[in-house]
Design a protein around this nucleic acid. Sequence first.
DNA 1: GCGACAG
DNA 2: ATCTTGTCGC
Length: 261
Amino acid sequence: MHEGGKKIKINGDSVDDAQREEWMHQQLTLKSRLIETDDISFSTDNDFSGLRYIGGVDLSFVKDNNNDAIASLVVLAYPALEVSLDHPYIAGFLAFREVAPLLSLITSLQSKQPSIFPQFIIVDGNGTLHPRQFGLACHLGVLANVPTIGVGKNFLQIDDGVELSMSHVKKVTRDVLKKGGDVYYLKGQSGTVYGAAVRSLDTTTNPIFVSVGHRISLDTAIRLVLRCCKYRIPEPTRQADICSREFIRTQGDLEKGQSSS
DNA sequence: GCGACAG
DNA sequence: ATCTTGTCGC
Protein backbone atom coordinates (compact mmCIF):
# COMPACT_ATOMS: atom_id res chain seq x y z
CA MET A 1 0.00 0.00 0.00
CA HIS A 2 2.85 2.29 -0.53
CA GLU A 3 4.82 3.93 -3.22
CA GLY A 4 8.40 5.04 -3.67
CA GLY A 5 10.59 3.86 -0.90
CA LYS A 6 14.04 2.73 -1.90
CA LYS A 7 15.92 4.53 0.79
CA ILE A 8 19.27 3.05 1.57
CA LYS A 9 21.48 4.54 -1.07
CA ILE A 10 25.16 4.98 -1.48
CA ASN A 11 26.23 8.57 -1.44
CA GLY A 12 28.94 10.74 0.00
CA ASP A 13 27.14 11.54 3.22
CA SER A 14 28.91 10.89 6.48
CA VAL A 15 29.04 11.98 10.10
CA ASP A 16 31.88 12.16 12.57
CA ASP A 17 32.58 9.42 15.07
CA ALA A 18 31.16 11.40 17.97
CA GLN A 19 27.82 11.71 16.21
CA ARG A 20 27.95 8.04 15.37
CA GLU A 21 28.57 7.13 18.99
CA GLU A 22 25.75 9.35 20.15
CA TRP A 23 23.35 7.79 17.72
CA MET A 24 24.34 4.31 18.68
CA HIS A 25 23.82 5.22 22.30
CA GLN A 26 20.35 6.46 21.52
CA GLN A 27 19.51 3.31 19.66
CA LEU A 28 20.52 1.17 22.60
CA THR A 29 18.75 3.41 25.07
CA LEU A 30 15.53 3.38 23.14
CA LYS A 31 15.82 -0.34 22.63
CA SER A 32 15.21 -0.79 26.33
CA ARG A 33 11.71 0.42 25.68
CA LEU A 34 11.11 -1.92 22.80
CA ILE A 35 8.13 -4.23 22.91
CA GLU A 36 8.26 -7.23 20.63
CA THR A 37 4.94 -8.78 21.48
CA ASP A 38 1.40 -7.89 20.44
CA ASP A 39 0.39 -4.70 22.20
CA ILE A 40 -2.34 -3.49 19.93
CA SER A 41 -5.88 -2.23 20.13
CA PHE A 42 -7.42 -4.98 18.02
CA SER A 43 -7.71 -8.74 18.02
CA THR A 44 -5.12 -11.07 16.48
CA ASP A 45 -7.74 -13.53 15.36
CA ASN A 46 -8.08 -14.50 11.73
CA ASP A 47 -9.93 -11.40 10.63
CA PHE A 48 -8.22 -9.02 13.03
CA SER A 49 -11.52 -7.93 14.46
CA GLY A 50 -11.45 -4.45 15.87
CA LEU A 51 -8.94 -3.29 13.27
CA ARG A 52 -10.25 -0.20 11.56
CA TYR A 53 -7.38 1.92 10.29
CA ILE A 54 -3.83 1.31 9.13
CA GLY A 55 -1.23 4.03 8.69
CA GLY A 56 1.80 4.28 6.44
CA VAL A 57 4.53 6.91 6.40
CA ASP A 58 7.03 7.91 3.79
CA LEU A 59 9.34 10.67 2.65
CA SER A 60 9.61 11.75 -0.95
CA PHE A 61 12.80 13.48 -1.98
CA VAL A 62 13.23 16.21 -4.46
CA LYS A 63 15.28 15.19 -7.45
CA ASP A 64 18.98 16.00 -7.20
CA ASN A 65 18.59 16.92 -3.57
CA ASN A 66 19.12 14.54 -0.70
CA ASN A 67 18.13 16.97 1.98
CA ASP A 68 14.76 18.38 1.01
CA ALA A 69 11.85 16.05 1.37
CA ILE A 70 8.14 15.93 1.90
CA ALA A 71 6.78 13.71 4.63
CA SER A 72 3.45 12.06 4.16
CA LEU A 73 1.21 9.89 6.24
CA VAL A 74 -1.46 7.73 4.70
CA VAL A 75 -4.33 6.11 6.52
CA LEU A 76 -6.32 3.33 4.95
CA ALA A 77 -9.38 1.61 6.28
CA TYR A 78 -9.25 -2.11 6.97
CA PRO A 79 -10.04 -4.42 5.26
CA ALA A 80 -10.96 -2.33 2.22
CA LEU A 81 -7.47 -0.78 2.08
CA GLU A 82 -8.92 2.49 0.98
CA VAL A 83 -10.72 5.18 2.84
CA SER A 84 -14.44 4.91 2.40
CA LEU A 85 -16.70 7.77 3.27
CA ASP A 86 -19.92 7.08 5.08
CA HIS A 87 -21.72 10.32 4.33
CA PRO A 88 -22.43 12.37 1.23
CA TYR A 89 -21.03 15.79 0.58
CA ILE A 90 -23.56 18.41 1.56
CA ALA A 91 -22.50 22.05 1.50
CA GLY A 92 -22.33 23.22 5.09
CA PHE A 93 -21.75 19.69 6.38
CA LEU A 94 -18.41 18.76 4.86
CA ALA A 95 -17.06 17.72 8.24
CA PHE A 96 -19.47 14.84 8.55
CA ARG A 97 -18.00 13.41 5.38
CA GLU A 98 -14.33 14.04 5.95
CA VAL A 99 -13.55 14.48 9.62
CA ALA A 100 -13.33 10.81 10.62
CA PRO A 101 -10.50 9.76 8.30
CA LEU A 102 -8.65 13.00 8.94
CA LEU A 103 -8.96 12.57 12.67
CA SER A 104 -7.53 9.07 12.45
CA LEU A 105 -4.56 10.47 10.54
CA ILE A 106 -3.88 12.92 13.31
CA THR A 107 -4.15 10.46 16.17
CA SER A 108 -2.04 8.03 14.22
CA LEU A 109 0.69 10.57 13.77
CA GLN A 110 0.51 11.58 17.42
CA SER A 111 1.27 8.05 18.54
CA LYS A 112 3.68 6.99 15.82
CA GLN A 113 5.72 10.10 15.15
CA PRO A 114 5.20 12.50 18.07
CA SER A 115 8.56 14.12 17.38
CA ILE A 116 7.33 15.63 14.14
CA PHE A 117 3.77 16.26 15.14
CA PRO A 118 2.80 19.57 13.55
CA GLN A 119 2.19 22.61 15.73
CA PHE A 120 -0.81 23.54 13.66
CA ILE A 121 -2.64 22.06 10.70
CA ILE A 122 -3.95 23.78 7.61
CA VAL A 123 -7.24 22.19 6.62
CA ASP A 124 -8.54 21.94 3.07
CA GLY A 125 -11.89 23.51 3.85
CA ASN A 126 -13.32 26.34 5.88
CA GLY A 127 -13.27 26.98 9.59
CA THR A 128 -15.49 29.76 10.88
CA LEU A 129 -16.27 30.85 7.33
CA HIS A 130 -19.38 28.78 7.60
CA PRO A 131 -23.14 29.27 8.11
CA ARG A 132 -22.85 28.20 11.74
CA GLN A 133 -19.25 29.28 12.09
CA PHE A 134 -18.15 25.69 12.53
CA GLY A 135 -16.75 24.22 9.34
CA LEU A 136 -14.44 21.26 8.84
CA ALA A 137 -11.35 23.04 10.16
CA CYS A 138 -13.11 23.86 13.45
CA HIS A 139 -14.65 20.41 13.70
CA LEU A 140 -11.32 18.67 13.19
CA GLY A 141 -9.45 21.07 15.45
CA VAL A 142 -11.84 20.63 18.34
CA LEU A 143 -12.06 16.85 18.10
CA ALA A 144 -8.29 16.47 17.81
CA ASN A 145 -7.55 19.34 20.18
CA VAL A 146 -5.04 20.68 17.68
CA PRO A 147 -4.59 24.22 16.36
CA THR A 148 -6.08 24.42 12.88
CA ILE A 149 -6.58 26.95 10.11
CA GLY A 150 -9.25 26.68 7.46
CA VAL A 151 -8.34 27.47 3.88
CA GLY A 152 -10.94 27.21 1.15
CA LYS A 153 -10.25 27.56 -2.55
CA ASN A 154 -13.81 28.63 -3.24
CA PHE A 155 -16.10 30.99 -1.44
CA LEU A 156 -18.95 29.54 0.55
CA GLN A 157 -21.74 32.06 0.62
CA ILE A 158 -23.11 32.87 4.03
CA ASP A 159 -26.54 34.28 4.70
CA ASP A 160 -25.58 37.43 6.58
CA GLY A 161 -26.21 40.33 4.23
CA VAL A 162 -25.21 41.11 0.67
CA GLU A 163 -21.66 41.72 1.84
CA LEU A 164 -21.22 37.98 1.94
CA SER A 165 -23.02 37.11 -1.27
CA MET A 166 -21.06 35.36 -3.96
CA SER A 167 -21.33 38.18 -6.45
CA HIS A 168 -20.35 40.88 -4.00
CA VAL A 169 -17.35 39.02 -2.70
CA LYS A 170 -16.16 38.24 -6.20
CA LYS A 171 -16.39 41.83 -7.23
CA VAL A 172 -14.86 43.42 -4.14
CA THR A 173 -12.18 40.79 -4.05
CA ARG A 174 -11.20 41.58 -7.61
CA ASP A 175 -10.97 45.31 -6.86
CA VAL A 176 -9.36 45.29 -3.44
CA LEU A 177 -6.80 42.51 -3.54
CA LYS A 178 -4.15 44.15 -5.68
CA LYS A 179 -1.01 42.39 -4.56
CA GLY A 180 0.20 39.36 -2.69
CA GLY A 181 -0.61 39.56 1.00
CA ASP A 182 -3.65 41.80 0.54
CA VAL A 183 -6.56 40.90 2.77
CA TYR A 184 -10.27 41.51 2.62
CA TYR A 185 -12.16 40.68 5.79
CA LEU A 186 -15.42 38.88 5.24
CA LYS A 187 -17.76 40.70 7.58
CA GLY A 188 -21.49 40.13 7.60
CA GLN A 189 -24.29 42.57 8.27
CA SER A 190 -24.41 41.23 11.82
CA GLY A 191 -20.87 42.47 12.33
CA THR A 192 -19.44 38.98 12.49
CA VAL A 193 -16.09 38.53 10.79
CA TYR A 194 -16.20 35.01 9.37
CA GLY A 195 -12.81 35.01 7.77
CA ALA A 196 -10.88 36.72 5.02
CA ALA A 197 -10.23 36.60 1.31
CA VAL A 198 -6.48 36.63 0.87
CA ARG A 199 -4.35 37.09 -2.21
CA SER A 200 -1.51 34.61 -1.87
CA LEU A 201 0.91 36.14 -4.36
CA ASP A 202 1.40 39.02 -6.73
CA THR A 203 1.13 36.57 -9.58
CA THR A 204 -2.20 35.00 -8.70
CA THR A 205 -5.57 36.69 -8.99
CA ASN A 206 -8.02 34.34 -7.34
CA PRO A 207 -7.98 34.67 -3.59
CA ILE A 208 -8.01 31.91 -1.03
CA PHE A 209 -10.44 32.03 1.86
CA VAL A 210 -8.81 31.88 5.27
CA SER A 211 -10.69 31.41 8.50
CA VAL A 212 -10.16 30.40 12.08
CA GLY A 213 -10.12 26.67 12.69
CA HIS A 214 -9.20 26.20 16.33
CA ARG A 215 -6.82 27.82 18.81
CA ILE A 216 -5.46 30.37 16.29
CA SER A 217 -6.77 33.89 15.74
CA LEU A 218 -7.72 35.06 12.27
CA ASP A 219 -4.86 37.52 11.95
CA THR A 220 -2.28 34.99 13.04
CA ALA A 221 -3.85 32.47 10.72
CA ILE A 222 -3.54 34.83 7.78
CA ARG A 223 0.09 35.59 8.54
CA LEU A 224 0.90 31.91 8.87
CA VAL A 225 -0.90 30.97 5.68
CA LEU A 226 0.87 33.68 3.72
CA ARG A 227 4.22 32.35 4.88
CA CYS A 228 3.21 28.94 3.55
CA CYS A 229 2.39 30.09 0.03
CA LYS A 230 4.83 29.32 -2.74
CA TYR A 231 1.82 29.14 -5.04
CA ARG A 232 -1.80 30.10 -4.55
CA ILE A 233 -2.59 27.13 -2.34
CA PRO A 234 -0.56 26.92 0.88
CA GLU A 235 2.19 24.36 0.49
CA PRO A 236 1.01 21.92 3.18
CA THR A 237 -2.38 21.61 1.54
CA ARG A 238 -0.91 21.52 -1.93
CA GLN A 239 1.55 18.77 -1.08
CA ALA A 240 -1.13 16.73 0.64
CA ASP A 241 -3.22 17.01 -2.48
CA ILE A 242 -0.35 16.05 -4.77
CA CYS A 243 0.53 13.05 -2.62
CA SER A 244 -2.97 11.68 -2.42
CA ARG A 245 -3.48 12.10 -6.16
CA GLU A 246 -0.19 10.40 -6.90
CA PHE A 247 -1.10 7.57 -4.61
CA ILE A 248 -4.36 7.02 -6.41
CA ARG A 249 -2.64 7.27 -9.77
CA THR A 250 0.06 4.70 -9.04
CA GLN A 251 -1.68 2.33 -6.66
CA GLY A 252 -4.67 2.46 -8.93
CA ASP A 253 -8.30 2.83 -8.06
CA LEU A 254 -10.43 -0.04 -7.02
CA GLU A 255 -13.50 -0.64 -9.07
CA LYS A 256 -16.77 0.69 -7.98
CA GLY A 257 -20.00 -1.24 -8.28
CA GLN A 258 -19.96 -3.38 -5.14
CA SER A 259 -22.75 -5.94 -5.23
CA SER A 260 -25.90 -5.46 -3.17
CA SER A 261 -28.80 -3.66 -4.74
C1' DG B 1 -39.85 26.43 -9.86
C1' DC B 2 -35.42 29.13 -8.58
C1' DG B 3 -31.08 29.87 -6.25
C1' DA B 4 -26.95 28.21 -3.89
C1' DC B 5 -23.46 24.74 -3.62
C1' DA B 6 -16.26 24.35 1.31
C1' DG B 7 -14.80 19.26 -0.76
C1' DA C 1 -14.39 16.75 -5.76
C1' DT C 2 -14.15 14.77 -10.85
C1' DC C 3 -14.81 14.21 -16.21
C1' DT C 4 -10.22 16.16 -19.51
C1' DT C 5 -5.73 18.59 -24.01
C1' DG C 6 -4.14 21.89 -25.37
C1' DT C 7 -2.86 26.30 -24.83
C1' DC C 8 -1.98 31.26 -23.58
C1' DG C 9 1.32 33.77 -20.78
C1' DC C 10 5.17 35.10 -17.62
